[in-house]
Design a protein around this nucleic acid. Sequence first.
DNA 1: TTGTATGCGTTATCAA
DNA 2: TTGATAACGCATACAA
Lengths: 339, 339
Amino acid sequence: MATIKDVSQRAHVSPATVSRVINGGNGVSDVTRAAVLAVIDELGYQPNAFARSLATNRSGGIGVVVSEVSSAVYGGILQGIESVTERHGMHLLVSSGHARAERERKAFEFLRQRRSDALILQLDGAQDAEVVAWSRLGVPLVVVGRRVEGLADRCVFLDNVAGGELATRHLLDRGHRRIAHIAGLPSIQDARDRFTGYLQALADHGVPFDASLVADGGFVEEGGQRAMRRLLEGGEPFTAVFAANDQSAAGAMRALRDAGLSVPDDVSVVGFDDTLLAHYMVPSLTTVRQPLREMGQAAATLALARLGIAAREEVNLRFEPVLVERESVAAPRAGHTPA
Amino acid sequence: MATIKDVSQRAHVSPATVSRVINGGNGVSDVTRAAVLAVIDELGYQPNAFARSLATNRSGGIGVVVSEVSSAVYGGILQGIESVTERHGMHLLVSSGHARAERERKAFEFLRQRRSDALILQLDGAQDAEVVAWSRLGVPLVVVGRRVEGLADRCVFLDNVAGGELATRHLLDRGHRRIAHIAGLPSIQDARDRFTGYLQALADHGVPFDASLVADGGFVEEGGQRAMRRLLEGGEPFTAVFAANDQSAAGAMRALRDAGLSVPDDVSVVGFDDTLLAHYMVPSLTTVRQPLREMGQAAATLALARLGIAAREEVNLRFEPVLVERESVAAPRAGHTPA
DNA sequence: TTGTATGCGTTATCAA
DNA sequence: TTGATAACGCATACAA
């Protein structure tokens, strides 16, 4: 493999000049530049990334911690990140945290040691305090999909409270009053926020909260199914349900179908995330979309800005959820109570 | 940030000794080792990855080119790859090729220049000849999800012909004789192989091939929908359809529903890939599963073996498809022809 | 505009 | 078992 020295000798210039040509080429005469370029081409010379990194203390890599390298829910974030890093010639070091604090810590340390120029973190397990501690370690760091107290200026997140409100309000606007909620994992802030939004929407419409209409779905399909069964068995009537994510909504719909109830005729359902399956379910699922790609792009732009690479443009940090209307919501049947 | 020199001075040994301690520590007395380790801990010393790479000419990174960083279809491959690289302390450099030769070439060059110790390629666009040329460039290279002629010993792939056969045979076994096929992108080998499997199964059962029962679905939902519409309009009767992937199967089912036909009562449907949506469709989709995680793991193991890192165990290269039976297939109705 | 010389932090070779 | 020292390949401060 040809080195900068090989090029310099063959071009009858110094290594420094070759280096200049490679890096922008300021302060090099046109003739020398052309000569050097010719030799570079001739030799098929490519700078050694290691040596360059050692000299500049830059890797050209952005480390990313995600809950899962390929996630049906958060995949869009990674796509968004890549779309901008690619444009700036940076590469991606990806490691997954599996939504567990310990694994996330390991992934973080790993990527940091590998000298990522900056880190983008999508964390589920780690505590706020820990993330704050990490932020003091020197590596520029951006958090995505979460708002960490104390790092507000480097967090790209969805307003989940607004999302919960949006979903619930949509049902209220259609005339529903008895609206159940299938909650997500209580350990996850997103889940709590969506629940808060649900409560706020009810309060805004003067609908009293009924705790017996809330069941735990744990963000998974089976959980949603069990939750819906419990709600039906509970005997408290309701005409609609807001599930904290699409998967638990799918489970709920399955339980409703098993109980011989029709969606949306007997019960309306709203999900959250707008994952692929929302489109494919029958009836297709009305849900709340997270603009994941855009969030990923914002996070990456923020990270690059911290490195002085991307223009320090205005980056949106708080993203608003969007209601995607499909077929799973209808007005409540007059005088009908399914449960 | 502390360097090896700082450690050596404080421990009153040479940098060389510190280096030895870090890398296995052979040929170091227990006392010195303990002393060095203590200082390392005290200073929070971490070796500089760049310098180490420059000296060893190894990055500890595996480059991966995938069609999409987060793909509903191929995501499992990346998960499988990560599960083994993680175990060996290697990191992942990920870049996407967007299923286009030009982008794939760029991604390959990029990762190669970034000095990945090895590359794992999941390619859709690049020609075989090009991949073979790449393999001569020096970087150990493994291809996944495809069998490249001339690189057979480093290709991890699914037997797509067997998959096409499996799907078609399943329908034949249920008594279907008029079986349509919604083909995938003709430019992609997988699509052609699945079609070949379809033909073979028909031939094995003595069922004559009818070209008017084949329509192009292009691997996408709308394509599948259009294809099914064309098949129905074509007027040739059929009682089942094998779609080259789940998405086009979903489109086909949509078209059938729009035409007032029932799945599986009027028409049975088999898909391919066993993506998430197969589980969520109504009726849920009988389909052919690719063992993607396992394939990813095999590819990674192969790559590490080429680096002399993982044990050179026997790695399975050819993977067999698995039929996943769900609700979209039934025996044909006696004397009934939908189209 | 160009060249010289040095440093970046390791690993590895060779002696001791 | 340990140490001195030369690579590794590039960027850059300083000189010319």
